[in-house]
Simulated scan of single mutants.
Amino acid sequence: MEIKDMSWEILEVPLKKPFKIALGTTTVYQGVLVKLCTDELCGYGEAAPSPRITGDTVGSTITALERFKGALIGKDPREIGKLMNELNHLLARNTTAKAAVDFALHDILGKTAGLPVRNLLGGERDTIETSLTVTIGSVEDSVKSAEELLNAGAKVLKVKIGLNPEEDVERIRAIRNITDAKIRVDANQGYSLKRAINVLRKIERYEIEFAEQPLPAAQVEELGVLRRSTEIPIMADEAVHTKEDVLRLVGKVDAINIKLMKSGGIYEAARMAAVAKAAGMKIMVGCMIETRLGITAGTHFALGVGVDYADLDGYWDLSRALFSGVKFENGVNILPDAPGLGVKPL
């Protein structure tokens, strides 16, 4: 078996409403669909570039894919580790382009084996709850958004904070007043150490599951200080892209957020997860704004390697669906009963 063809196309979908976090506001999703084909079948992958987090753009992703094509044509798609190592040596960073190729390779492998990708990865879990996200807005808007998500079946809310400490505390208080659901918070690097300690201590009473990346990504030592200053567990996100980053964060945080767009796909993410588990750190699988294709891949990974938490709702704000795949029911993501990723273009 060998790769005969590789193609891609740009994806662009307006969001239902602006997605506002401490790092900025997004109104349109832009990504790249990648298709790898052998003589027998094709595999699909998605790149969801984020200049503020991965440093990638749609343009840089396509440039990387053009370079990768020559290295992939004629190769055996089942040798995923070998191929991903070759791409890593060929081009540094460009993790969203690598993730798209990685997804397509895993899709082909699963289809060839007649197994879902989650089973190929170990099949450690059957289900996992995923949070749904409350973006930054007025306190009233945040409460309304939380109510809508709860009515849609959410069992876990991820509340974005990080711009206004006083309003953030009030936002959490107001949302806690309407629900007993789990609440986790994400500041997306928005606070200084002093402000983070102040806010987290004030919201401890509201039973917060964990606080994600309260400080700038480079402030690793300060994350350790913050961890010792609050009862709320601390999770790293923007500070962790590689397995080496995981090692740097041992003892500084309680948990890490592995996003396949940051790691460069499932193959590298599995290495990160192995390091984190060995170090006794909890793991969440998160996402960017992505289509169901990327979220389906993330769900396969989360269930396959057996992580602790999931934040896999990246397609919820898209104004239209581009792919079939994962479905959300009663607080969990349900994977298709199909080999490979189980996704199809609509």
Rank of each mutant, 00 (worst) to 15 (best):
D5I: 00
S7I: 03
V13F: 05
P14L: 09
L15A: 12
K16S: 11
K17T: 02
A22E: 02
G31V: 04
K35N: 04
C37K: 15
E40A: 14
C42Y: 13
G43T: 12
Y44V: 01
A47Q: 12
R52T: 14
T57C: 06
T61W: 02
T63A: 15
E66K: 15
F68M: 01
G70S: 13
G70I: 03
D76W: 09
P77V: 08
R78V: 11
E79L: 15
M84E: 09
N85M: 08
N88W: 06
N88Y: 13
H89G: 13
H89Q: 14
L90C: 06
L91S: 02
A92D: 12
N94E: 06
A97P: 06
K98S: 03
K98M: 02
A100Q: 02
A100H: 02
F103M: 15
I108Q: 03
G110V: 03
G110P: 09
G110Q: 10
G114I: 05
L115E: 12
E124I: 06
D126V: 10
T127A: 00
E129H: 05
S131E: 07
S131G: 14
L132M: 14
T135R: 00
G137M: 05
V139A: 06
L150T: 08
A152P: 01
K155F: 00
K155E: 13
V159H: 04
K160S: 10
N164K: 13
P165N: 08
D168K: 11
D168L: 08
E170Y: 04
R171E: 04
I175K: 10
R176T: 06
I178C: 08
D180C: 02
R184T: 11
R184V: 01
A187Y: 07
A187H: 07
G190R: 05
I197D: 09
Q213L: 04
P214N: 09
P216I: 11
A217T: 00
A217Q: 12
A217P: 00
A218S: 11
V220H: 03
E222C: 05
L223A: 07
L223F: 13
R227H: 01
S229D: 04
E231Q: 07
P233W: 04
H241S: 12
E244H: 15
V246P: 11
L247G: 02
L249F: 11
L249D: 10
V250A: 13
G251C: 12
N257Y: 03
K259R: 15
L260M: 12
K262F: 11
K262Y: 13
S263I: 05
S263W: 01
Y267D: 03
K277V: 00
G280E: 10
M281E: 04
I289C: 02
T291I: 05
R292D: 01
G294Y: 03
G298Q: 10
T299F: 02
T299V: 12
T299H: 06
V305R: 03
G306R: 04
D308A: 04
L312I: 14
Y315S: 11
W316R: 15
S319D: 14
A321P: 01
F323K: 10
E329D: 09
N330M: 00
V332L: 01
L335F: 07
P336H: 07
P336V: 06
A338C: 02
P339V: 10
L341C: 06
G342E: 09
V343C: 14
